[in-house]
């Protein structure tokens, strides 16, 4: 390759990378982060994003350059150079993706292990789903029930899932955590809210007629406000 072509190729790659970075940075891709787990998941998200932008820039540069430079003239019936392969190149593009996905797998596995570990003295809450509403109870507070999930800020929470009829899925986008509720199983989900506020609870597993409307709220409160609410009799 001539030096000029290499420069052109690199310029296209940098431009493609810049466009992809703009797409990644200008819109708000992720909602507010409101839990410790969300922070870690966002880290994986951006880690993967930068790797993807890197791969995308290379592929886009080669594609755009080829489409631009290697068009045949309308009256040109000749063939291209008979290149059958290049072992070195093939080893490179097998090895580099292997390394990249291995890195992603390691980072993901570490984050997963951290997010799965509940902190000391977690607050236990039972989550109940049925067509088409959510309810919650607090075994540590005399099985106090509520139709809104109230949680204290900065305390580890273990949610235990109970499905009464069909599959549902518990999702709070601001917590980034999601767990299906399955009849007969009681999987748990760990969340450590770290931002006071009100966020939506969304059912993300198709559960029938009212699926789109199966919503609830989670209110993250200051610890003493939570204690006050939780120890009060009634709803």
């Amino acid at each position: 390759m001539r030096r000029g072509s290499i420069v052109q190729l690199i310029v296209i790659g940098v431009l493609a990378g810049a466009v992809a970075s703009a797409v990644a940075l200008i819109p708000n891709w992720l909602p507010t982060s409101a839990s410790r787990e969300a922070g870690r998941i966002d880290f994986v998200f951006w880690f993967v994003t930068w790797i993807c932008i890197f791969v995308f820039s290379i592929v886009a540069a080669v594609t755009i350059y080829s489409v631009w430079k290697f068009r045949s003239k309308p009256d040109d019936d000749s063939d291209g150079p008979p290149i059958h392969g290049h072992t070195g190149l093939e080893i490179v593009w097998t090895a580099i993706p292997t390394l990249l996905v291995t890195a992603i797998a390691i980072v993901s596995a570490i984050v997963l292990a951290k997010n799965d570990a509940a902190g000391a003295n977690p607050l236990r809450v039972n989550v109940y789903a049925q067509q088409f509403f959510w309810s919650y109870d607090y075994p540590g507070y005399g099985n106090k029930t509520s139709s809104i999930l109230r949680l204290p800020v900065d305390r580890s929470v273990v949610l235990t899932m109970h499905a009464k009829d069909v599959l549902h899925s518990f999702w709070v986008p601001e917590f980034r955590q999601k767990q299906d509720l399955v009849p007969g199983l009681h999987p748990t989900l760990h969340i450590t809210p770290n931002k006071v506020g009100t966020y939506p609870v969304i059912c993300t597993e198709l559960c029938g007629l009212g699926h789109a409307l199966m919503r609830s709220r989670v209110i993250v409160m200051k610890p003493n406000a939570f204690e006050q609410w939780a120890t009060k009799k009634g709803k």
Partner: peptide, 20 residues
């Protein structure tokens, strides 16, 4: 593009957020 978004989904922590 479809393959790269597949890499996002392959990473369990991102999949937990984006699933469904």
């Amino acid at each position: 593009i479809g393959g790269l978004s597949g890499v996002y989904l392959g990473a369990v922590p991102i999949d937990i957020h984006t699933s469904d």
